[in-house]
Design a protein around this nucleic acid. Sequence first.
RNA 1: AAACAUUCGUUGAUU
Length: 337
Amino acid sequence: IVSWNALITGHAEYEQYDEVLSFWMEMQMAGIAPNTATCVRILQACSVLEEADRGQESHSEVVHRGFENEFFVSNTLVDMYSNCGLLEDSQNVFSKISVRDAASWNALIAGYSGHQLEKETQNVLWEMHCEGVSPDSITFATLLKACGSTGAIDKGLDIHAQILKKESEDLYAGSTLVDLYAKCGFLQESQYVFDKLSDRDVVCWNALISGYADKGLTEEALGCIEQMQCEGICLDPGTYVCSLQACGGVGTISKARELHADIVKDQFEAIPCVSSALVNMYVKNGFLAEACEVFDEQTSHDVISWTALIAGYVEDGNIEKVFNCLQKMHMEGVSPN
RNA sequence: AAACAUUCGUUGAUU
């Protein structure tokens, strides 16, 4: 059991959730009983992969083992159902929790607000208030994220005001605000909130860069990178992905090549989202040969990198290559979406 | 001897 758990948590930490689930299957076949830590990891994997069916199976397993009321387990169940969009189940599990903490509430709220169910979200917030639990910075970040994904700037402003009243500044809520303003097209506000954050980490930088990239402001986006380096903040894979997105326009290819070189230096080229961002960047700039080169170096291709490459050939009018790709894609067991 | 856990912020293609 110890070594199984080591395997499972190890993979979970590296975000290899598919592996978590396949180990879990092996574990079941070997007839080894999970403990609460294993169950948490498995549910987490189902949550991230939005595997509702397997989540439900695992829920029965949890009940069968008598872990249902274990503290971490029940919160993870709420999270899993929330993430999978099974909000009734989420609510059911939540209702059965005897001692609810902020995480329980936040997981439920994330489910409702993430699925744009405003009324339900408000209801939960109200219930929370009635039970004397006040929203924390995570609650705010959750609510703001929902505003960002729908571009609901009014609501975002409202929450921003509430935060200013209550919370001392918080990095999570701060980054979400940077992101929210950027997504709604208010880049100055985004920059302003960003400037006011005292401890800036890589994620809030990335949010800012992503805002500039989205609007095609290559200079600004790449300027951020320089500043980050000055401040001694390490660029992470996300930074490169955001920055590469800023390199779609004319005259950006040389900067993009520099980024590519840095990515190689930092050994991020094998990370799927980074390499597909590279493929995409070369495609957008019309360098299909280089796109292909990066693509071929990938250890495995997912739908996204296939689609990026195919889109390039379509743009190029190279029908033959398009069909070629579709065939190879099929052979690799990747189905188009 | 070993795993110790849940909620939150940024990021890839197409539509």
